[in-house]
Design a protein around this nucleic acid. Structure first.
Lengths: 142, 142
DNA sequence: CGAATTTATCTCCACGTCAAGATAAGTAAT
DNA sequence: ATTACTTATCTTGACGTGGAGATAAATTCG
């Protein structure tokens, strides 16, 4: 078994692409892009938040998150509001339509990921999670 | 330990991003984009190949791979040539400069990945490779 | 208080990607 | 040989992203 860092990286990349492909198929079918889905998901699970806070959570730069919120606002899935404690900030919240959409889409997404990872037993998935978490953490620290 | 498919997907995503961040830093410092690096790497290890064959290997559509080869040709890192057995095809090969660059860049890349995955022991990396390979393969099959 | 710095957001532009369609060359079938 | 189909590549237009810089508000410090 190959244990070089390069090999691990390649295998990780391929696994990522395979899962991402599944994820994208479902998300695309709802008429959303990957980033827009991530933004809605953050809003659903963390509640309203300022633009750049969301950007950091989903790894988008200031320009990109502005564009993403613009897209979602154009579709009436989110709304910008004023932050009473900071007049620079614009707080983003889900609209009714946005909440309905992401709740449904998220359920589908979870089911799709469950199916896509079905090739591994529960024990294997647990082991994979532990290893990947450790790998990600240590890589981020360097 | 969480063993849902969704959780595994999220952890995989984060680990991927952490490693990709390392990879991109090194590749960018050579003046290349991620895809262009992948194209050169294919040419280095598999030898000259037609445009679309390369595109499939690095997962780029016909339009994208054309643009990538254009960029590399503009920098004189690769050259297009005729395929004697198929006049539609354009065979891409490394130039001297291209070979020198990718050989050097690839060594650096391998070293960077070695360092980035250093948080895992050899045994852990072997286990991770086995799990990720299985995961990727089964996800691709569905 | 006023000046300098930081923070939050937005605008603008360049880049890489994809999708769809165009062109040209090879292949198969009648 | 003609027709239809497939394959290899390129072109065009739209989209999402990042980076640099602009603006405005908040914060820090003398």
């Amino acid at each position: 078994m190959e244990t070089t860092g390069l090999h691990l990286w390649l295998v990780l990349w391929k696994a990522y692409q395979a899962l991402r492909c599944h994820a994208e198929r479902h998300i695309h079918s709802v008429g959303l892009g990957f980033s827009d889905f991530a933004v809605l998901e953050v809003l659903l699970h963390k509640g309203p938040a300022p633009v750049n806070t969301i950007g950091e959570l989903v790894h988008l730069t200031s320009g990109s998150i502005t564009a993403a919120i613009d897209r979602l606002e154009r579709k009436s899935l989110v709304a910008r509001g004023a932050d009473p404690s900071d007049r620079r900030a614009r707080v983003v919240r889900l609209t009714e339509a946005g909440r309905a959409l992401i709740e449904c889409a998220f359920r589908d997404h979870a089911a799709a990921m469950e199916a896509a990872t079905g090739g591994l037993s529960a024990a294997e998935r647990g082991a994979a999670v532990a290893l990947l978490r450790k790998l990600g953490r240590s890589a981020r620290e360097r």
